[in-house]
Write a protein that binds this DNA or RNA. Structure first.
Length: 729
DNA sequence: ATTAGGG
DNA sequence: CCCTAAT
């Protein structure tokens, strides 16, 4: 068996509940497909068709429903899957072939999606067997029914989902309270532009309901995975064990995952695809879009999203990519960012680093210092249920003693890919997963400590010295899991407040902090970045290590048992999760690309290029002066120029960051002034009345006169200065 | 894909 | 840096 996917689980235990998840890539990318937005429907359609089959099945054997359900499940599932793949041209709505590649795991992927939902709901049911959850239905259904469904099999799909909810028809609140996540995620989906289908699916729903009644939550859970694996070796993402006793936290994870997937799907398959282009590999832009969607949409929901959000976006992608050699590091980064962003939302859980490496929310409990209770996490979560909110309330209890307690709410473990034959037993699957996890752990990890986003590297400092105290802002404290390797090199990110290991590492490798070389490698360039986890800010540069093993985290357990002290029972009260709003924000920022201040040499190169090319040809500037600096996009250059111009105009005292030689700033102003005019001229207007610069021969001819340029520069500069001076005055 | 600008 | 809009 091969490890393929990353597994993530919460602290609560080793028994990581896993959820079958389809590789993102499968869902989203197709070889030929190019536009994400066009592919919205694919998944749904597929689901729909599958659902249709399912429905038929269930209806045909309506009587058998509950009783034989469990037993038949697998076969049932298989059928479904098969149908999905083979009967595209049939009844329900023909699924467009473009949506997935035959033989690929696409079908299963979709199934997974479905499964995820089902599972999620199952859990819910399990937890609240008696709850009146009709209300829940609303939310769920909304999600379930997307416009995509309209196209055909939608009904069926909804049916499936709904069925799970059948029991819960009326209490949205319950759901919300208990699993905020669920509601959230669904909402998110909706927000993402998916519209719910309002038409009645009731009939069908009923039909399915019988089949998948809440009565057998567990059954369902189990069975779905089976579906997943059905045709051929499907990559099972993880299979979650529906453990009866599982604590809440686990469930939440499940939910999370499920939700995540949904989101993903939506994102990836948002529009009816017309053709091959429908799905295209994510491009940076694409990612951005997605990210945007996620973020902006999520923001609204943000408050509710919490650490539940464990899932990663990139996992699937990776998957796909495996097939396609191309390395979309960049994409990856973006995706990671997405993850982070989402995670960040959680107030209590602070920073999640990608890869699932780090993350954690810290809570502080002033009480007895050393009590270390490792199992409490699960409990905590369970007890709290809603978690952060509860915990978050107080910060009280400050310290009577000088001990500072930390509780890491959860660490995320990177995804594990597990490829298991269909015929494999559940037991073997468990074993496999376990082995994978253990393997990961073998490597050992280091825990990094970040305060306010800044990594504290000095291990000898005391908490007090570092500002980590009960009274202090534990909220801004976060931990990261990092590979041993990485630990070594002290990162140097110049001035970067939030150094990211991965980036730093890269930097170290390629360039010296102080004087960046234009051609230096960037994180993106690195082959396999160290599986480092950064805390919030730097998500971007995370590269996912090729070997999942590497990046796998493992540490959860480690952390769990030791370093982080679980908070003792007393404490829900005692525990104060500090809602780190600031931090959250930071985290958000984290999502952004890592900040890479322009070095003087870069500025020089930029200035030079602009002098020659002007301010409207950033693409060319990029090519000419930053071709090898992948992290500098033409937009970056343009922005930098913008800031340079601004910087040049303000008082030196107001300038921040690495000082740019005045000489360069002068050139900036000169060039800026010149090109501004030049542009004006192009448009036919000569506004120069006062400026002689406009007539400067060298600039007059732009690029063609490169050589003379430098010679003239000095003059221009001085002139420009005057000009600028006038302007300002 | 680029550019231009606002945030 | 990010995001949008307009090319």
């Amino acid at each position: 068996m091969v490890l393929k996917k990353r597994l993530e689980y919460g602290f609560s235990g080793f028994q990581v509940p896993t959820i079958p998840r389809a590789p993102r890539s499968a869902r989203r990318r197709g070889p030929h497909k190019k536009k994400v937005e066009d592919s919205q429907i694919c998944a749904f359609e597929l689901l729909a068709s599958l659902a249709g089959k399912l429905l038929q099945e269930s209806e045909s054997s309506s009587a058998s429903s509950n009783a034989s359900e469990g037993n038949n499940q697998s076969s049932f599932d298989k059928k479904v899957v098969k149908h999905g793949r083979r009967d595209e041209d049939k009844p329900v709505k023909p699924v467009k072939e473009e949506c997935f590649e035959p033989g690929s795991s696409e079908g299963s992927a979709f199934v997974n999606e479905l499964t995820s939902k089902s599972i999620t709901q199952k859990f819910i049911l399990k937890e609240f067997p008696n709850a009146d959850s009709n209300a829940v239905l609303e939310r769920t259904s909304s999600i379930t029914k997307s416009d995509c469904l309209d196209k055909g099999g939608g009904d069926v799909k909804s049916v499936i989902c709904n069925s799970s909810n059948a029991a819960f028809q009326n209490n949205p609140n319950i759901l919300e309270g208990v699993f905020p996540l669920i509601g959230e995620s669904y909402h998110s989906n909706v927000d993402n532009g998916i519209e719910r289908e309002q038409e009645g699916d009731k009939l069908e729903t009923d039909g399915l309901a019988n089949t998948c009644s809440p009565k057998d939550p567990i059954e369902l859970c189990v069975k779905f995975p089976a579906m997943v694996s059905s045709d051929s070796n499907v990559e099972l993402s993880l299979i979650r064990e529906p453990v009866p006793n599982a604590s809440f936290s686990k469930h939440r994870n499940d939910i999370k995952l499920g939700s995540r997937d949904d989101d993903e799907n939506f994102l990836r398959c948002n529009k009816p695809s017309t053709k091959v282009k429908a799905v295209r590999p994510l491009t940076r832009i694409g990612d951005r879009r997605i990210r945007k969607l996620l973020t902006s949409k999520y923001w609204k929901v943000a408050p509710k999203l919490r650490d539940y959000e464990v899932s990663r976006n990139d996992g699937g992608t990776k998957h796909l990519h495996q097939k396609r050699k191309a390395c979309y590091n960049r994409d990856r980064c973006y995706r990671d960012n997405l993850h982070k962003r989402r995670k960040l939302f959680d107030q209590s859980s602070v920073v999640m680093s990608d890869g699932g490496f780090s993350s954690e929310s810290v809570s502080n409990s002033p009480e007895k210092g050393s009590g270390d209770k490792s199992g409490s996490f699960g409990i905590l979560h369970g007890a709290t249920g809603v978690s952060s909110s509860v915990l978050g309330r107080q910060t009280s209890f400050h310290s009577r003693d000088s001990n500072v307690k930390f509780s890491v709410k959860s660490f995320r473990v990177p995804e594990l890919y597990v490829d298991v034959p269909e015929a494999a037993t559940v037991g073997s699957l468990k074993k496999t997963v376990m082995e994978a996890v253990n393997a990961l752990l073998q490597g050992g990890l280091h825990v990094g400590v970040l305060l306010q986003g800044k990594k504290i590297r000095d291990d000898n400092r005391t908490l007090l010295q570092s500002g980590i105290s009960s009274k202090g802002n534990l909220g801004s404290l976060s931990f990261t899991l990092e590979p041993n390797i990485v630990e070594a090199p002290p990162s140097i990110s110049s001035g970067d407040p939030l150094p990211s290991l991965s980036c730093d590492t890269s930097e170290l490798l390629t360039r010296s902090p102080g004087t960046p070389v234009l051609g230096s490698l960037t994180c993106d360039d690195l082959p396999e970045p160290l599986p480092v986890i950064n805390s919030g800010t730097q998500a971007q540069s995370n590269h996912e290590p090729v070997s999942s093993h590497t990046d796998t985290l493992t540490d959860e357990m480690i952390l769990d048992s030791r370093a982080l002290v679980a908070v003792p029972a007393m404490s829900i009260e005692a525990l104060a999760v500090i809602p780190v709003n600031q931090k959250t924000k930071r985290s958000e920022l984290a999502q952004r690309r890592t900040r890479r201040p322009f070095s003087v040499s870069e500025v020089e190169a930029l200035v030079h290029a602009v002098e020659e090319l002007g301010t409207g040809r950033w693409r060319d500037v990029k090519l000419q002066a930053f071709e090898n600096a992948d992290h500098r996009t033409y937009v970056d250059l343009k922005d930098k120029w913008k800031t340079l111009v601004h910087t040049a105009k303000i008082n030196p005292q107001q300038r921040r960051g690495e000082p740019v030689p005045q000489e360069l700033l002068d050139r900036v102003l000169a060039a800026h002034a010149y090109w501004c005019q030049h542009q004006a001229k192009q448009h036919g207007k000569h506004q120069s009345g006062t400026l002689k610069i406009a007539d400067a021969p060298a600039y007059e001819h732009g690029v063609e006169v490169e050589f003379t340029l430098s010679a003239v520069e000095s003059n221009l500069n001085s002139q420009v200065k005057e000009v600028s001076g006038h302007r300002q005055l």
